[in-house]
């Protein structure tokens, strides 16, 4: 599935377009629901049931269970909605940056500081 549009690849980056939005719709809709504290609690109460209720695929449900951010992105997750999923576990954007780049949080922070020199 594509959008019929050719893109130039940007390494380490997914352009979130219509094809991605369609692939990740259920996953992102679930994460959007986490704006509401009642929904966050319902998710924590029974994660599998909550994923099922939103119609996530088996792969998406597994990636949620594994807290596998890179896989969730591959499966159509959008960073803004996934941030609400990560927020349930009090992970900030530097925790997520470290997870995605395979660095420790300290190494990831050092890299950011170096970009300012």
């Amino acid at each position: 599935m594509g959008t019929g549009t050719t893109r130039h690849e940007i390494p380490g980056t997914t352009i979130f377009d219509g094809a991605e939005a369609q692939k990740g719709y259920a996953l992102n809709k679930m994460c959007f629901s986490f704006n509401d504290g009642t929904n966050r609690a319902a998710f924590l109460d029974d994660e599998e049931a909550y994923c099922h209720r939103y119609g996530l695929s088996d792969d998406q449900t597994k990636a949620i269970r594994d807290r596998d951010v890179l896989r969730l992105l591959e499966l159509g997750g959008h960073p803004y909605y996934l941030a609400k999923f990560a927020g349930i576990f009090r992970l900030d954007v530097q925790d997520l940056g470290a997870l995605q780049t395979g660095l420790s949080k300290e190494e990831f922070q050092a890299r950011l500081v170096a970009a300012g020199r």
């Binding site: 940007i10 980056t13 997914t14 996934l82 954007v93 940056g97 780049t101 970009a115 300012g116």
Partner: peptide
């Protein structure tokens, strides 16, 4: 800035 993917943390001063 970039939040997601393997290029997370990208900055272009």
């Amino acid at each position: 800035h970039q939040l997601e993917g393997r290029r997370a943390g990208f900055i272009n001063k």
